Simulated assay, not measured.
Amino acid sequence: MSHLLSPPHFVGLGVLIVDDTPLSQLILEACIRSMGMTVYKAGSGGEALEVFEREQPDIVLMDVMMPGMDGLEATRRIKAMSGTRWVPVVMITALYSDDDIVNGLRAGADDYLMKPVNVVILKSKLTNLAQTIRQQQELREYRKNAEAESKLAMQVMQRLIRPMDFGAQLQHTIMPTSTFSGDVILAGHTSDGRLQAVLADGTGHGLAAALTVIPVIDVFYGMTDKDMSVEHIAREVNGKLHKILPVGRFVAAVLVSLDYRAGSMTVWNGGIPFAAFVSSDGAILHRWHSASPPLGLLDETQYENVAETYCCAQDGYFFACSDGLLEAEDERGELLGEARLTEWLRAPVSDKVAFIVDQLRLFVGDNHPHDDVSFLIAPI
């Protein structure tokens, strides 16, 4: 029976004894103190509420039959006062009928003890409750630490990504499925006035996917600042990712360089499902299918680097999206797909980004997307 007396489970836990009989209080108190727990006492339901609010105990032992406010009403109020914190209430009663037990459970009781109290059974129940409480406390602490780490990681990501203030030259949106997005959209100008942008989609979603795309950020900005082409940027990112990513992790990406003076755009696509030049009236004039493998998948000897330049004979815009948009599902499980996206691109609206976001939300309804959604629009 030594495990019942193990101090680490119990030290620091508080137990509120609610009983109008002093002798019963003394018996319960002696048992609880022998286990290393702190004891609080109340002789009525009303006093129990006052002590509970003041001391915030972890467990409540509640007598049912008391003058004034009985144990059932006191239990209901204590459960309401507990909020989201789980405070187990053990009813201690001489009432044995099924109806009495059901009434107690409906009031919020978590367990029952019959009078006269068997000390061995009481200690066993308290042991189980204490272990559960400790596990919940550890879980809360873990979540608190995880939230702090997530906040730090988010701050790092936000500082790595430069402000996306390009006005009408670039519009975009990212809709993450969790705190972190495995999708990232970056852009920057070269010294000769070209706008270069990348939409990158790391494997999976959440923090793990976000960590995957961090090397893309550093390389893209550094090489764009040096006026390097999208082919050179893609090759450099691929080599870096291949060295550091574990097997099975990679980054699908599309890089575009818009030359406004020449009226052309050069696009490198490695694993992005939809990249196109769209006319101002919504017609798909050119598609860039994935001609290269996703970044980080192959080493330098196997890597093929293919970019294509397209001369824009009429006004329009470059559009690209991650697979999270095309694979979004409605409440029946139907995929959004390219056909529906193409219809949205043809819609005569002034704010295409807001329109697509609104249509996506209408399409998925209450079925939240299971993958990060991102897309960009760059007029030329």
Rank of each mutant, 00 (worst) to 15 (best):
M35I: 02
G271N: 07
Q158G: 05
S292D: 05
L72R: 12
F375L: 12
F166D: 05
Y112C: 01
R143P: 10
P215V: 05
G104A: 06
N305M: 06
D100G: 05
P176K: 05
I174N: 07
T224S: 13
S44V: 03
R85A: 06
T342W: 01
I380F: 14
R346K: 13
P7E: 10
M65C: 13
A74N: 09
G71S: 06
N305R: 03
S82W: 00
F220W: 01
G36N: 12
A252N: 14
L362W: 01
G167D: 10
A252S: 15
V254T: 15
M265W: 04
I377S: 01
N128T: 13
L126P: 14
A109G: 13
M265L: 15
T309K: 04
V198W: 04
I59W: 11
E338A: 08
V278H: 10
R76T: 13
G83Y: 00
S292H: 04
N305I: 02
D100Y: 12
H289E: 08
L285V: 03
Q25Y: 00
L61V: 15
L126I: 14
V219G: 12
P22R: 03
T266P: 14
I233P: 08
G270W: 00
P8S: 08
G270M: 01
D372F: 09
V254C: 15
F363L: 03
R235D: 12
F375D: 08
G282K: 02
E141M: 09
D281C: 02
A209T: 11
K41N: 12
F318D: 08
D100P: 04
